[in-house]
């Protein structure tokens, strides 16, 4: 890799913006990996549209830091990313992708609705757009979740197994004070999907501090290879 990473001096405001932006960028990137592989054409368009919304939100949040958005996306190393571990895990099967989209979107939907009145004018403005978009994301993921969970024995098994695997990663998705509201939001949908949420126990963490799973490095290698190999490339 030809280009060295940027050094960041993170103020609390920049840390907050990067946390939100990195969640959106990394989940957007994961969803974009479905392009060309989704189970139906309509679902392909849906996942790509959601990915676009998320990457658009990430751009607005990066721009609000006052630091070059491309440098933030392409010239940081894994330990400089603040995203939750849940969004960097590989897509797995379609059930895993949908369960994750649902659990993460339910948290971001509540966050953005609350942030519409934020003191920071940039965050409030971004929230005004993002809350409309995430409302669609949650609804779409919830529709699929019910179809998979309350579908065939095989789709139920896969959805339940994704839920079991992802649950320990959900501790990072909300501030602990917001967790009861999040549980209250996801509970009825899981029930309609005939899925059983595991009890809250020990939770994975570290993403917010830059301690990531091995998967983020692989994701970034693919995402960053071009701008790092050909700095300033245009086409």
């Amino acid at each position: 890799m030809a280009t060295t990473s940027i050094a960041l001096d993170e103020s609390p405001r920049i840390r907050t913006l990067l946390t939100l932006a990195d969640d959106a960028l990394i989940l957007g990137h994961r969803l974009s990996e479905w392009t060309g592989h989704a189970p139906t054409l309509e679902e392909e368009l849906a996942l790509a549209n959601i990915a676009l919304d998320l990457i658009g939100q990430a751009r607005a949040l990066y721009q609000a830091t006052g630091i070059d958005e491309d440098a933030l996306a392409y010239l940081r190393d894994p330990h400089q990313f603040r995203n939750a571990l849940a969004v960097e895990l590989p897509n797995g099967d379609f059930a895993f992708t949908i369960v994750r989209l649902f659990l993460v979107s339910a948290a971001s939907d509540a966050f953005w609705r609350g942030a519409v009145g934020a003191d920071d004018p940039d965050i409030a403005a971004i929230a005004g757009k993002a809350e409309k978009e995430t409302a669609y994301h949650v609804r779409h993921a919830a529709d699929w979740l019910v179809r998979l969970g309350d579908g065939t024995a095989e789709s139920h098994r896969r959805a339940q197994s994704a839920l079991d695997a992802l649950w320990p990663y959900t501790g990072e998705l909300t501030a602990s004070a917001d967790r009861p509201a999040w549980l209250h939001a996801v509970g009825p949908v899981l029930q309609r999907a005939t899925l059983t949420p595991p009890a809250d126990g020990w939770m994975q963490s570290g993403g917010r501090q830059g301690r990531h799973t091995e998967h983020l490095g692989h994701l970034l290698a693919e995402m960053q290879v071009l701008p790092r190999t050909y700095p300033g490339a245009t086409w």
Binding site: A51, L52, D53, L54, I55, G56, Q57, R59, A60, I126, K129, A130, E133
Partner: peptide, 8 residues
């Protein structure tokens, strides 16, 4: 003003 955040 953009329509959607990610509108290309």
């Amino acid at each position: 003003t953009p329509t959607y955040s990610g509108c290309p």
